[in-house]
Design a protein around this nucleic acid. Structure first.
Lengths: 161, 161
DNA sequence: AATATCGCCGAATTTAATTTCGTAGGACAA
DNA sequence: TTGTCCTACGAAATTAAATTCGGCGATATT
């Protein structure tokens, strides 16, 4: 299935609800979208099979669990051969403390989000990015002071028609 | 409860599992962490009450649902009074297409992640950020070419002890 | 119009969540 | 050491949810 999935309004509603209430019971979901539990479950299963729904996650509140810092690093490579990109991408995937990485256009090549215990540890991670055969020549770091608007959902209403 | 919650190994395991399998049944979870279903459920409820677990979410695969672009905008304010920050923060929370915003130190004041239908729409959102009484003087945009490592979980093993 | 297809509903069944309750083990004071 | 309190556990019972399945009606197809 290469094509975008054709979603009707009910599917959109299901996705919207599950984005925000990932652990809602099927019965409650069915009620919200005005379906019987069996039909609702069938649709959810289909959305999962088609991988419109990728997975389900608990959102943890790190504040309550431990001390930590978040940094956003703007990483530039020395050369822009496909091989250089691949090497870097492969490397960041192995680092648990790199929680997110995007390849971007603009003033740098990658934007890397790092969550680690403290600044000392961040320096270590930084060194690892610089010295790992990945051809990194520059890292500009932004320390996150406050997660003003944490990610919670995509704007489905804006994106779907 | 201002203090960090004291977590034993079992709690850590529960959180790790739920981060990745947010919709696992309590029975399966209990088996994974070597508890009876009732004890396991009691722990999960406690973690929820203490807001160590914030919420549950379905992770959608936007690729399969619609056309869209993701941009990361580095936003700088003209002045740095608390009031200026507040105004901007309040504003981005009202924009659905701003899916994430961090207040940061470094070369800019905010890092804003925007998901919208296309570049034309992104320009509109950009204008909204510039013209909204929020004292924005500069926006540097990075277009996301590829989500190399999408966020999926925090590195609990590194952060907890 | 006859037939096939699809998605829905509701009933029945299987499975899971939740509650209840008795007990074991650790901390602590006498 | 002994007794008491406290916490958390697991087993069993109960309640609720998930899942399966047969049949119905709408729509499309020939």
């Amino acid at each position: 299935m290469r094509e975008k999935r054709a979603l009707d309004r009910i599917d959109q509603n299901i996705l919207s609800v599950l984005q925000t209430e990932g652990r809602i019971t099927n019965q409650q979901l069915a009620e919200k979208v005005n379906l019987s539990p069996s039909s609702c479950l069938a649709r959810v299963r289909k959305l999962e099979e088609d991988r419109c729904i990728e997975s389900y996650h608990a959102q943890l509140n790190l504040e309550r669990l431990c001390r930590y810092i978040t940094c956003v690093a703007m990483v530039s490579l020395g050369q822009h051969r496909q091989e250089d990109f691949r090497t870097f991408e492969r490397f960041v995937k192995t680092l648990d403390e790199v929680v997110q990485c995007d390849t971007v256009s603009g003033g740098c090549d990658f934007i890397v989000r790092i969550v680690c215990a403290d600044m000392e540890r961040y320096h270590e991670v930084n060194e690892m990015l610089l010295n790992s055969g990945t051809n990194v020549v520059n890292i500009k770091t932004h320390v996150v002071m406050s997660e003003t608007k944490p990610f919670s959902k995509y704007p489905l209403d804006d994106l779907l028609q």
